[in-house]
Simulated scan of single mutants.
Amino acid sequence: MPEALAALEEAYARRAPDGPAPVIGYVGADVPVELLTAAGARAFRLTGDPDAGSGTGDRYLGLGVDPAARSVLSRLLAGSYGHLDRVVVSHDCEASLRLFYALRELRRVEPGTALPEAYLVDLLHLPHRTTARYNRRRIGEFAARLEAWTGRPLDLPRAVAAHDERRRLLAAAAELRRAVPARLTGRQFLAVLNAPLPVDEHIALLRRLLDEADRLQEHPGRRVFLSGSDHDTPHVYEAVESEGYVIVGEDHSFGDLSVTDPIGTGDPGASGLGPAGLGTGSLGAGLGAGGLDVLAEHYHRSGPTAHRATAGERAAHAAAAVKRCRAELFVAYSRAGDEAPAWDFPAQRAALDVPAVLLERQEYGRADLTALKDLTCAV
């Protein structure tokens, strides 16, 4: 295995941040991580653990909430992530919002839990100008809160440029997986994308990975596009790929949906991020007001996830993505407690020209592949 891929796999397997503080854990696809980097913090996306119990999370959130959120709460209460200075939660789905409320109330009524302060970034995705204004205000409030936490102005131009470079490199890595045969498995791509590293270290390893691309193994299995619930752990990918399939694309926020278009050009003088866009007053001398506009627009139009897009939008996205990935099979995965993806499946199946199957009410981190195997035998 190439050294860079091995290093990314190792970092992904740790599933915990290392290195200097401050570390800000975050939950949800809508947290503007560029602002965390601009504040000089380590941004660490919190994930659950299907192999550990979630009894405490079940107690406070109830069994009707997505088990991934219940697992995250259980891990926070158990201190499984190590030291976190803050937790930032986005309103990307109902489970994330419920998690935020639980964290806020537990910190208030049970201070002995020693939970970090939680902050909600409440971004919306309706296609309206009023929604865009609402999101811009929320982004500005979050930037001001970060400045209050750190006591210094945010370096947004540099952070945006760094994250855009990482997006560019991740897009190139995604093309390795889409190659025929695939040069990365779905499980490997999750590691490449979600390794919990500081952005500069991540960029360095991604560059090395692309330099070593000719040493990557080929993976000629049946090509699957995976739709539906988020996968914050590799369990389901490993289950699918152990049966001879290779996942070449997906539409959840731990996968291809996070490999978005760049926010700016990487040039501090472009897109309102340079001196002409600098704000004044409470946002500090180093933060561009125009840059916040661009950031708010980027997160406003992100998606389409199962929780915030119409069935028609999801179907159109699925049809285009399946063609781009040259997938042979379409698998919609809907976790118990996360029913929204199953609602999209009829429209997705109608829009596709490849066989499709729904794996519904699946246990967290598990996959009953009977229907997939039956579909494979039938085509």
Rank of each mutant, 00 (worst) to 15 (best):
Q348N: 12
A173Q: 01
Y364F: 04
P341G: 11
G55K: 11
E141F: 03
G284V: 11
A29E: 02
R183V: 04
D30R: 02
A21F: 02
G48Q: 06
E297F: 03
V121H: 04
L369T: 13
T47Y: 02
L5F: 03
D261R: 15
I203G: 12
R208M: 09
Q188V: 09
V87D: 03
T370C: 05
S90M: 00
H231M: 14
R187I: 08
L209M: 10
A11I: 03
R324T: 12
L375K: 10
G286M: 12
H163R: 15
G281V: 11
L369P: 00
S242Q: 15
L115T: 10
V109P: 07
P127A: 14
A315V: 11
V27C: 07
A7M: 09
D51M: 05
V72F: 02
V357Y: 09
A347L: 13
P346I: 13
L295K: 06
G279W: 04
A13N: 09
D230F: 05
L170C: 07
R361P: 00
G151N: 11
L99Y: 06
F44M: 08
S253I: 04
L169M: 08
A171S: 14
R137I: 07
A161L: 05
T310F: 05
V88F: 06
S271Q: 07
R314H: 14
L97D: 05
L73P: 05
E147L: 13
A367K: 02
A336D: 03
Y26E: 05
D338N: 14
A327C: 12
A21V: 02
D214M: 03
T376D: 14
L359S: 10
E297Y: 03
G140M: 03
R178E: 06
P50N: 07
T233A: 09
S71A: 13
L84E: 06
R152W: 12
F44A: 07
E9A: 13
L209V: 12
R335E: 06
T113W: 11
Y299W: 04
P220V: 06
H202C: 07
E147F: 00
A13G: 07
G55D: 15
E360M: 01
R138I: 05
K323W: 03
V109Q: 14
E34I: 02
D58P: 01
D230Q: 10
I247Y: 03
H219P: 10
L257Y: 03
T376L: 08
P22A: 08
V180S: 12
R335K: 10
A114S: 13
L190A: 11
A174R: 12
R137L: 07
L97N: 02
L84I: 08
V121I: 15
R138A: 06
H163I: 01
E165S: 07
L359E: 06
